[in-house]
Structure formats: structure tokens, C-alpha cells
Amino acid sequence: MRYAMAIDLDRCIGCRTCAVICKDHNAEPRGIWWNRVFSPGAPEYGTSVIVDGMPRMEFVPISCQHCENAPCQQVCPTGATYTDDTGTVLVDYEKCIGCRYCITACPYEVRQFNWSKPDGVEGVDGEYRWGYPEDYRQDGRLVYTPVRPEGVVEKCTFCVQYTNQGGIPACCTGCPANARIFGDIEDPESEISQYMSGRQWLVLGESFGTKPKVYYLPSTRGEGE
């Protein structure tokens, strides 16, 4: 079983709902984003970049690519970062020493460090914290906790707390444009295999040799132009 995600750039409308629902469900502290969406070359949301004399505004969501050949895992000195038997790259918060070597190794800039005590928002009843409210362990390893230890690295887990129980990641259930498809890439009958079948796809940073399991289906914009 190899979990993978396909992102259809033709369908993506750049709304950032995936990034936000990810943050909401995974208790990402303020300033931490496992998932981000930007337009290459454009200075700001809703602005464009001129290519060949024409404006473009392509939306590219990026989160952990769950690389088959994950540089972050290779460099992690304690094995805190590991790949589980679904191919999901996870971080054991109890083994991370915060050396940030994985951050330097990851070309996708998706790893986030808890530079301070993770906090919620000050509100009506003192501090409010969002997110899946219980710890989640995989074979004893703490791969999700609603209140992160300070000084550890975190990133997208494919929503391990859901996928391990047969669910799919929040960004995929939550994409209003249905641009994200998740599933077992080794199963030819799976939704993702079916969706990608016969379609052109690409991966980000192919030259790094990381073999990502997040596949991008290109937009039709600019086709044949």
C-alpha cells in the first residue's frame, strides 16, 4: 500500500481552503502552515505574472510530498522522521531533537519548526486551541499531538489520525473544487489510480530525486498557445 495524492492544477482555484482546513484539523499553531498555496511569480494572492506577454495566475498547493526517497528521513539523526508501511512520512514528536537538519534537507520547504511554545488564540475562556483534540500514536510513536512540544519539527502527516482509520486527509475531503485526490497508488482500482490513468502528471523538484508521492496534473491554461 502506497498512499499518494494527486492535485489537479486545472481544477485548483487557489482558494487555500486546503491550507486552512489542514491547520484547523491538525492544531497547527499560529505561524505554522503544513500546506500552502501560491501562484508562481505572482507577488500576492489575486495578482498575476506576465509570461510571454500574457498574465498567468496558476495556483500551486504544496505540502509534504511524502517522498519515496525522503531526504528528511535520511538525515534525521534519531529516526524521529520515518516512513510507515503506507508510505507516509511521519515525525515522532518524542524523538525529534530539533536539530532542523531535515528542514535543510527538504527542498519543498514544507517542514515547520516550533520556534516558540505553540499557542492558540487569546479568547473568551483564556486560550482557545483548535484541532483534533487527542494524541495519535502509531506503533507507540507520537505522530500527532494537539499541543506540540516546543522546539520540534512538524509537517503534513496525510492526516494520519484519519487515514489510519480508513479516512482521507482533511485537505482532500475539504477541497471545494475537488482538485485533490487521495488513495493507494499501488491499487489500480483506487480513486487516485483511476483519476491519473491516461493523464499527464508531474512531480515537483524532480531533479532532487526525491520521488514524491504528490502528483500534479497540469492545468490546461496555456495549452497549445
Binding site: I21, H25, W130, G131, A170, T173, G174, P176
Partner: peptide, 29 residues
């Protein structure tokens, strides 16, 4: 307290699912 929000995705017309945007799924904050 409301800890997280998802789209209900229960519209009988499937293409309406999931319905809800970045603002709605984070109003708990």
C-alpha cells in the same frame, strides 16, 4: 467547544460536495 470544522458534504447532488470555504472551516477560531 467546537474544535474543528469540516464541510458536511451531505448534499444529494454530489457535485455540491464538499461545500464550504477557508473562512467557514476556520470560524471556530
Amino acid at each position: 467547544q467546537i474544535k474543528m470544522i469540516s464541510q458536511a458534504s451531505d448534499y444529494p447532488f454530489e457535485q455540491y460536495n464538499p461545500r464550504g470555504c477557508l473562512k467557514g472551516v476556520s470560524v471556530n477560531t
